[in-house]
């Protein structure tokens, strides 16, 4: 696939590129490098972020931040979904914010901060979005935040 090769040259040694169910997955090795890669990807034509998700793998000691990036302005790229992944340690989750490159991440990074406590460095308004100010249990989407479950055992 031609696009995959193009992305491989962009990412170079800073990350790993593979194809998973039709989507191009880029696993960035170090959080600091993500800005550099994102800048190059934007120059390539990827102009907006569809979703920013956090995934809790704290049993393995890290959180994963997943950016799904695609394009509106370039029709060929619109067909592709680029999955940009970065791992941050779960005891000190910090990653640079991509808001300078893709302004569309603003609300989604804020939500990820609220739900996982991942600090996006450089984000101008990193505060709670959905939850009330006095909400006592922090970071509800972490696996350590338990809620009741239904079932025979419950």
């Amino acid at each position: 696939m031609e696009l995959k090769e193009r992305i491989e040259t962009i990412v170079g040694s800073t990350g790993e590129v593979r194809i998973d169910r039709g989507n191009i997955v880029v696993e960035v090795k170090e959080p600091k490098k993500i800005i550099e890669i994102a800048k190059k990807l934007k120059a390539e034509g990827f102009d907006h972020v569809k979703s920013v998700s956090g995934v809790d793998y704290s049993d393995q000691g890290y959180f994963e931040i997943v950016y799904h990036v695609s394009s509106y302005s370039t029709p060929e790229l619109a067909k592709a979904i680029l999955v940009l992944k970065v791992k941050v340690p779960s005891d000190n989750p910090r990653s640079p914010s991509l808001i300078e490159i893709w302004p569309s991440v603003e609300m989604m990074e804020r939500e990820t901060y609220e739900m996982y406590g991942i600090i996006f460095e450089g984000h101008p308004e990193l505060k709670r979005l959905f939850l009330p100010e006095e909400f006592e249990g922090v970071y509800p989407l972490r696996k350590s935040f338990k809620i009741k479950e239904e079932g025979i055992m419950a």
């Binding site: 907006h48 972020v49 569809k50 509106y72 619109a78 893709w102 302004p103």
Partner: peptide
């Protein structure tokens, strides 16, 4: 701006992006 802010749906198409 629509592209930059990641607008979706009819709002995006009303701004001239055929997505």
């Amino acid at each position: 701006k629509a592209i930059e802010w990641g607008t979706v749906g009819p709002n995006l198409r009303a701004s001239g992006v055929a997505y």
